[in-house]
Simulated scan of single mutants.
Amino acid sequence: MRITIVAASIDNSGGFRVVSALGQRLLASGHDVRIVAPTKAQPGLRAKLRALRHRQTLRPRQQHSDHLGSLQDRTTVVPHRAPLVADDLPDADLIIATWWATMDWLQDLPATKGTPVHLVQDYETWGGPSHSVDHVMRMGGPKVAISTYLHKLLTDTFGQRDVLLLPNAVDHTLFHAEPRSKQKTLTMGFVYAPDPRKGTDLVLKALDRVRHTMPNIKVVAFGHHAPTKELPLPSWIDYTISPKQETLRAIYASCDVWLFGSRREGFGLPILEAMACRTPVIALNAGAAADLIDDGSGILLDNEDWTGMADAILRIGAMSEEEWRAYSDRAHHRAAEQNWDRVGSALEHWLVDVVARPRSR
């Protein structure tokens, strides 16, 4: 099959990691896969002035990704900003949108550009007016949901019937760790992000509460943003900006517990990446947390329950070596079930069926 994947940008985000992983599996199965994206808009005067006011370094927005792998030479960034138009895209059997706006771009394309498929990675109401996102979510045609939460949203709220539930996986060549013991100094980690959806403020509240009872803890974090004035990081947190993949693996593997505080999420790849590195996860119930954390592989809490997160940290801190090791082993076993080759194969078989259907337009 000839498959075009339409991306909003080429970057190091978790969403693009998923797009690239799926594309590489389809390519390895013998399909002609291409990724096309528009040129990313550069920071404007307002953003520059804001950065100057907060004494932040504002870097140009680059179009590159560490996740492209075998798709590096099959990726095109067109010389203009969004939206993409027919002339930007090769003829194909399938054209896969990876964000609500990219799905909107596909509606008036000629049939030669392929059958549109919507890869739904989140309910992206922060990316535009909610009525525009909802309109796209109600569009007919085949859709892929990466979590039970999104599958239920598509079927129950938006009345979709042609939806493949295809949970994300993890690259076990990148994220792995040898069996280990719980450390004498309880070490935990989290992802820093200034967006309120990501719940960094909730994690910081939980950690501050824990330190009153257990002052001798170690905390690490990573993210893609310098800490903001509105959401500063305490000096006792060891923070790494945009770590390389091997450094990222080492951060996960250095922890006794990983903290996932998102208020809203389509999936939450750090949960799976930490578990693959044998690190149990304490997660608020967002994205795929409920899908992944079961049978003692971690601790699942109600959404926004930061006090419960603090209590769960203390619970893990009080665990015996044997209890913690059981959590670690179960987390690793759960992550091992999520394999990109298996996920890619399931997607391939479903897409073959989509191409075989009569075109409705």
Rank of each mutant, 00 (worst) to 15 (best):
M1H: 12
I3A: 12
T4G: 06
A7V: 12
N12R: 10
R17S: 15
V18T: 15
L22M: 15
S29N: 07
S29V: 03
G30D: 11
D32W: 11
P38I: 01
K40V: 14
Q42W: 00
G44I: 00
G44P: 00
A47C: 01
R50N: 10
R55T: 06
Q72W: 03
Q72G: 01
P79L: 09
A92Y: 03
I95P: 03
I96C: 03
A97D: 06
T98N: 08
T102S: 12
D104M: 03
Q107A: 09
D108C: 04
T112P: 01
K113Q: 11
G114W: 03
L119G: 06
D122C: 05
E124T: 09
D134T: 07
D134A: 15
H135K: 12
G140W: 03
A145T: 07
S147Q: 05
K152H: 14
L153R: 13
L154H: 05
T155S: 14
L166W: 08
L166D: 10
E178H: 05
E178R: 08
Q183L: 07
T185R: 15
R197L: 10
A206L: 01
L207Q: 09
H212M: 13
H212E: 13
T213Q: 14
K218Y: 12
V219C: 08
V220Q: 11
F222S: 02
H224N: 12
H225N: 13
E230P: 01
L231M: 14
P234W: 13
I237R: 07
I241V: 14
E246T: 15
R249I: 02
A253R: 01
W258C: 00
S262F: 04
R264S: 08
G266R: 09
L269D: 09
L269Y: 07
I271A: 05
M275S: 05
C277H: 00
R278I: 02
A283N: 04
G298Q: 02
E304I: 00
E304G: 00
D305C: 00
W306L: 01
A310P: 04
D311L: 10
I316R: 01
E321F: 04
E322C: 06
E323Q: 15
E323N: 07
E323H: 05
R334L: 06
E337D: 07
N339E: 15
A346V: 10
A346I: 09
L351M: 11
P358Q: 12
